[in-house]
Amino acid sequence: MVRMDTVINGTRFDREVEPNVLLFDFLRDELGLTGTNRSCDVQVCGSCTVLVDGLPVSSCTFLAYEADGSVVETIEGIRDSDFYKRAESAFVSHAAVQCGFCTPGFVMTLKSIVEDGGGADEAQLRRSLSGNLCRCTGYRSILDAAAEIVGEQ
């Protein structure tokens, strides 16, 4: 067991965890945070994206204890933020969500882009979002929503 003293969505968790527990499983199994989804398991699809100290990470390949001393945010933790409100309305108005399995991951990545200063153009957005896969939308609507979110600051 190793120590994990981490602030997750504003609450401090000081726990002992098995060293091989993934952050993804910790969030879902221990804390019931099921808004983060798993698909590829190999850090390609981005559906499991959460923020660790503001940076997007794939929680499917990030060990829980590695978040020791860090601040973790998941989709559940940002629902009341101004950023989220803007993101939600942009995703709704562009119909940038279909099955929704990828969507929280995109929202989390976008949050880090916005916090990084935003102002990205289409080419930069395409690059920054190329680690988030979506099989349903074909990306056009997501990029349009993203441009609105990033541009609105």
Binding site: G35, N37, Y84, A87, V92, A95, V97, C99, G100, F101
Partner: peptide, 21 residues
């Protein structure tokens, strides 16, 4: 009319349930 999806918000904020949830 392009009525907004009735399930959009639940899917964006992560509250929509899939079987694995």
């Amino acid at each position: 009319s392009s009525f907004p999806r009735v399930d959009a918000v639940a899917k964006i904020d992560g509250s929509a349930d899939y079987v694995g949830d």
